[in-house]
Amino acid sequence: MCDSHDHDHDHAHGHACGVSRRQALMGVGATTLAGAAAIAAPAAAQEADPYAPPAEPALPPSDMVLQKGRVAVVVTDPQIDFLSPDGVTWKVVGESVTEHGVVENIGKLFRAAKEKDLVVAVSPHYYYPTDHGWKFEGPLEKLMHAIGMFDRKGPTNLDGFENSGADFMPEYREFINDGKTIVASPHKVYGPEQNDLALQLRKNGVDQVILAGMSANLCVEAHLRELLEMGFEVAVVSDATAAAKLPEGDGYLAAIINFRYIANALWTTEEAVAQIAAL
């Protein structure tokens, strides 16, 4: 016990007793801190999610309501180079694609749209040999050309296309190759300004778009902005897109912030499928 009355041993005993008390106090302190950390962990984990919607949004909520006959599902770049571990970009997009369950979620959108006989359109990304002769490029254009991303042998040549990086994901081919899905001419940088997507949608009486695909801060955001400027009402599906994570920044985080600011609606796949099913 620490209250010994042996005077000859007071000094040694006092030292040992002090150590014992410090250890006890440290033990209590550690237990208290551990308990507090356990209580705070859920809140901290929630705060740590950089993609979570704001608890108290400042912007007005969406009032977008789908109308049968006016709506299409549009998917950008549902291709192997973006969405498969075999693709040339997987090392930088794979974490985000996996984190959000993008491959499965795009498949759910395709299936839901087909079950309701909605207009479905794909805006693909292809590069032909002549595109590699461009005299100036942005950073990502340089990278895409350097790694052979979306390469095809020519606009009228499908040699080697099947199962190449430019080909569609095998999971989606039953939907895309059904003879009904619109496959637009390729976009070349990010947006649909240079392809026939808008024309195809207008010719089908579409002015509402459910937008998904790859990648969030590049082609998806560029399509969103252009379609909005052309008078379409656009809902983006937040977990049916993903983006690269590089030292320059997290592309998905950059995009999700802009989606909240400018899209007519920002839905999860579950919400989008429910909206489609209600038509």
Rank of each mutant, 00 (worst) to 15 (best):
G213H: 03
G231H: 06
G191R: 05
H125R: 11
H5F: 10
T130N: 13
P124S: 05
N264G: 14
E248R: 04
D63T: 15
P42F: 15
A37G: 01
P170L: 05
L266P: 02
M64E: 02
D86Q: 13
V206M: 02
N163P: 02
G107N: 09
G107M: 10
M169L: 09
G165P: 01
N195G: 07
R111Y: 09
T269Y: 07
P247Q: 03
A30S: 14
A43C: 08
I80T: 08
E171N: 04
K68I: 13
I147W: 04
Q79G: 01
Y261C: 09
N177C: 13
R152A: 00
L227R: 02
V234K: 00
A30K: 14
P192V: 07
S185D: 05
K108H: 10
A40I: 15
P139F: 11
V74W: 04
W134D: 12
L228H: 06
I176Q: 00
F110G: 01
E221L: 14
E193A: 14
M26I: 15
S164Q: 06
G94I: 11
H100A: 10
L253C: 07
V206W: 02
C219A: 15
H100Q: 14
N264C: 05
E221T: 04
V119K: 00
Y51F: 13
I182A: 01
E226N: 12
V103S: 02
H11L: 10
P247E: 07
R225L: 06
S215W: 08
V122C: 06
A52L: 11
P170W: 07
A44P: 01
L66Q: 00
V273N: 07
V65S: 05
S20Q: 14
A72T: 02
